[in-house]
Design a protein around this nucleic acid. Sequence first.
DNA 1: GGGGCGCTACTCGGATACTGTATGTCCGAGTCGCAGCGG
DNA 2: CCGCTGCGACTCGGACATACAGTATCCGAGTAGCGCCCC
Lengths: 159, 159
Amino acid sequence: MKLSNGVEWALHCCVSLSQSSAPVPAARLAQLHGIPPAYLAKHLQALSRAGIVRSTPGPVGGYAFTRPPEQISALEVVQAIDGAQAAFRCTEIRRNGPLAVSPEACVKKCAIARAMAAADTAWRAALSTITVADLGRSIDADSSGTALHDVRHWLSGPG
Amino acid sequence: MKLSNGVEWALHCCVSLSQSSAPVPAARLAQLHGIPPAYLAKHLQALSRAGIVRSTPGPVGGYAFTRPPEQISALEVVQAIDGAQAAFRCTEIRRNGPLAVSPEACVKKCAIARAMAAADTAWRAALSTITVADLGRSIDADSSGTALHDVRHWLSGPG
DNA sequence: GGGGCGCTACTCGGATACTGTATGTCCGAGTCGCAGCGG
DNA sequence: CCGCTGCGACTCGGACATACAGTATCCGAGTAGCGCCCC
């Protein structure tokens, strides 16, 4: 099991975006984080499709939030990039082999799928309690309150 | 993010193994679940390397538990197949770009990595509370108490 | 008849191809700002 | 001097290659049981 690399990029970009009221181009976000611009654009498109950010074309365009960062959970960002489906997918092997379970008895998910689903729910619940604004505050605290200011200043500077 | 298919196979095989005191060959487990024998063998090797099962070569050989199923958690099985490392891996992009964080300030994991690690811990905690014996009991309850008996009987039957 | 030995069949284990997803890149469609021109 | 128009540059968006991990398979090494032969 491996989480797409774009998840990390998207979360960092969301924190950066929360520091700018004006739209920020994908290339500028990529430059800020030192990552491939074209590939980051692909992931930002996913955020756009998920309704987390809104894209604006044209010279002063870019990406901006559709809502305040307090209303955007880390779970939303992760699901936008990685998909909402659970990591574990039951292929119903209980219906195979000499002791196959009858289809009528399979209306209920099998115990193994239930256990994995419960773990998945716990994972998503943990992510849903954290907002982009929380992440920004934590990062700011780690840097003694300079990180967010620097980002804000850099984003407002010359392109 | 996608969990290997072998996780499902391994969990089902563990429940089946818990019903046999004698070693069970990989081919027989594959037949019971209707899955590719050669590929299942690969995953059983992983369980063996993790110390969950013990392999015995020879005509009456096969795989058997090293401990009672009450002492084997679903987390152990999942980690044996999928690896113990977390799904999210921080690539430290905060150290890139024009606002790179100094290496001395990176002794602490960044807030985003901490958030993802917390979610991962919740996921693993949920899995660690469930044992192979629990899974067997749940499956048995779903089938009104016939499933485990059938497996036990089938495994003791002719090969 | 009993013990030793060789053979056979069965098991696991790792090395070897193949497929699908994640990664990375590119170019085209659309849009806004700005400069130039006319009134 | 003001408004309109055309151009240009910049933006996103999806379509196109590549690398790696999961999937699937095979054959060789090792072991235990069984039958046979010898004593």
